[in-house]
Each structure stands twice: as structure tokens, then as C-alpha cells.
Amino acid sequence: MASEFSITDFHIPIGEWVSAAVDWIQDNFTGVLDGISDAIKFIVDNFEDGLLGIPPVLLALIIILIAAWRVSWRFGIFAFVSMALIFGMGIWDETISTLALVIGSSVLALVIGIPIGIAMARKDMVEAVVRPVLDFMQTMPPFVYLIPAAIFFGLGKVPGAIATLVFAMPPAVRLTNLGIRQVSEEHVEAGRAFGCTDRQLLLKVQLPLAMPSIMAGVNQTIMLALSMVVIASMIGAGGLGNTVLTGIQRLDVGLGFEGGLGVVLLAILLDRITQSVGTRKPGVSLRMRLKKVLGKG
């Protein structure tokens, strides 16, 4: 009878569907998942091994010099103090592990995100499809990514990197799209009028002119990656997030603060240094930067 129906009985089993879909993917795409897993593991491990392979003092010196050269000598001093604090707190290895994971997943996010952004800018159809997906990716609470990542790829750095890259990619896509669309009509016309092919138009006109916007996207991606990497320590991604997590689990305020401070210092360094890449400095042409960003350098 209708009178016995209550609104609380109304139930759409979205959660069950998602679980079923995840199970299905896991059962049918084992090979693909393993391939992705191996590739990401290879990239992230190599970054980490490479960075940890450099003597800590030398690496710290390089970071300080980059900070002083790209930003200012004052910022160089800040970088020096930061390095000293990180060494002093005994969290160098964790910091480098986090840095490697951030760089690894950011590079992946950019390698995937920038071409998607370019495709969005060139076809309105693609934009119409991708935009809601991006909205979804950005508004979904980041913790939620950890679950499928852990199910598909187990625990450790790989699911951490994947959750991070999914979470950090949207700004790179959005700002690439926006940057290219904002290139003035006359510049595009000039490119075409002088006989650019579609490819030349993209490489010689649209991307260089969109570069400030794209670099803002790169900066945002790196910052989001850093915040996600800390969360990803919950599925064993390691690094500074682990220090914070241990602090929480043991209710050790001091340890938690040390980990947190490490994240903050790393964030400031990464933010200022990546922002400086967007501005023009003599000696480094945008072309070179473009090649670097596209991974062709």
C-alpha cells in the first residue's frame, strides 16, 4: 500500500554502483592497471632516488642558489634558513621524498593536463565535455580519491601519486584552455595570414602567448599536489605527510608541528620559484621554458 511507503525508504544505490564499477575495472583491466602502476612507480622512484642520491648539502645549496637567482637574494636567505630548519628538525629525507612525489605527480599532471587544455581550447565540444569533469574533480573531497587509488594500486607511493595527479590536474587544464582562448584574434589572424599551419599556429603563436596563464596553472598544480601529497600519506605515500600523520596518531604536537612546518617551507619555496618562471628573465627564453613544460627540453 502507498500509505506504507516512506521517503526514507527511497534509495538509489549510487555507492553500490560505484563499488561494482570499481570491482569490474579491477577484474577486467588488471594488465592496464599494472602497466600504469609500473610506469608511475618508475617515474616517482627515479625522481626520489635521483634527489636522494645528491649529497644533502649540495642539493640544499642548489635550491638556495636557484631561489637567489630566480627570485631575489633575500629569498635566497629565506631558502638558506629553511634548509637549516629542515636539517635541524631531522626531516630532510621526508622532505625530499615529498618533493619527489610532488614533482613526479605534477609532471604527470602537466603532461596529461596541458594537452587536454589545448584540445579544449581548439574544440568547443571538448570543452563542453571536459569542463564538468574538471568541476567534479575539483569539488570532490580529496580523501575520496584515496579509496579507488588504494583499491586499484594497493598502498604506497603509486596510489598516492595517482590520487595527487587527479586532484592537481584541473588548474593546469583550465588555465591552458583559458590562456589559449585569451590570445587575441589579431594575433591568431597574424599567424594564419603569414602562412602558419595549424601546428605552427599552436607552437609559435598560441602557446607562447598563453604562457603566463599556463605557468599560473603549473604553479597551481604544484601547490595542489603538495597539499594532496600530505593527505596521501594516509595510504602510505610517505614523506612529510607521514610525519604529520604519526604526530596525530601519537598525539605528539611537536612532531606534528615539525612535519607541518616542513610542508609550509617546501610550499613557500616551490610557490615562489615556480611563479618566477612565469616572468621574463634575461637568458631564459619562453621557448626554452615551453619546451621544458612540454617535456621536450
Binding site: E186, A190, R192, F194, G195, V205, P208, L209
Partner: peptide, 21 residues
């Protein structure tokens, strides 16, 4: 068409359309 634009016809624009980089 691309060949024609490269060799036969060039264009000057109202707001110059120079590449700042």
C-alpha cells in the same frame, strides 16, 4: 593556401599583432 599566404600576400594589422616574446 598556406603557400599563397607565405609568398603572395602579407598583412598588416590595426593593433600591430606583434609577438611580445
Amino acid at each position: 593556401l598556406i603557400d599563397m599566404r607565405r609568398h603572395k600576400m602579407s598583412m598588416v594589422f590595426q593593433s600591430f599583432a606583434l609577438m611580445p616574446h
